[in-house]
Amino acid sequence: MLSRVADSLYWIGRYLERTEHTARLLDVNLSLMLDQTPAAAERRWERMQTYLAWNYEGIPQTYALVQALTFDVSNASSLVSGIGAARENARQVREQISSEMWEQLNRVYLQVKRTTMDQMWQEPHEFLHNVLKEGIHLFQGITTATLSHGECWHWLRLGQFMERAMATAILLDVHFAETGGTPDDQTNYLDWVGLLKSCTSFEAYCNVYTADIRPERIAEFLLLNAESPRSVRFAADQVAASIQAIASNTLGRRGDRVKRLAGRLQASLDYGQVDEIMADGLSGYLATIQQQCQQIHTNVYQTFISYPVETALV
């Protein structure tokens, strides 16, 4: 496969995951606002800006903030930019993906472009959930059903789960840092539920631990749960599996180093114990995870995409 094509596929995966994540955060925040004091809501919006590593310039009124994060094409973190970037990458590899995938992505993009801020403001859930989240989920379903599960598919998956692992780690880091995150902290019930909902994990958490919300359990669930597709561990498993598949597809020993890095991340999550992690400091642990993800990303590029010519003459 052409390196440029792999690059585009990887970023389709990342951009769509990122867009879905932002849409979900907005959706959760807007609905929690209805139950919270203005001061608590303001804190939540500030935290959200930290999650997204983005700063709103100006007075952070909710309407203006939401507009900047949805329809502002000049803001690279906005939903419209994310879906547009995914579509632009897909357009460049149209002959590699299935027509059904292209048509679905195109459809979501056109729907987003057609919606105005005022329409969205009237029914934010309709737009964020039905148009965006479901649109992206449908794209992922179509991908699984219509695309051969070969190298192409693995590049998409690699992008998707890299993004998920990093975004979830950041989410946990910021949340625990700001709320103190001491064990059994029950004071801010709604915020902790919000965190779970931001990862589509509230119901899944309840299935495992009942509706008894405890920060330590939340950390365990979002970090180390082997079965939840939203956990960092699950994402790391998928990253390792896709790297394994890509490396064996491209033969040679060039993939060894990046396979080792992915395996190390996987192992640290597979064998991690939440009590030890909390005792040693969650923040430090999460920083290591993010660092490892970054290393994997860099090495994937060095190995498969932007390698120096001299090392790759075959």
């Binding site: 496969m1 052409l2 390196s3 190298e151 040679g252």
Partner: peptide, 25 residues
């Protein structure tokens, strides 16, 4: 056949290669 752009191709010792995930072809 592969659809390539200029940036996918490299000339080395007067031979043209394309940059693939499995190395230069």
């Amino acid at each position: 056949v592969e659809l390539v752009e200029g940036r996918d191709l490299i000339v080395h010792d007067n031979v043209v290669y394309m940059r693939t995930t499995a190395g230069l072809r």
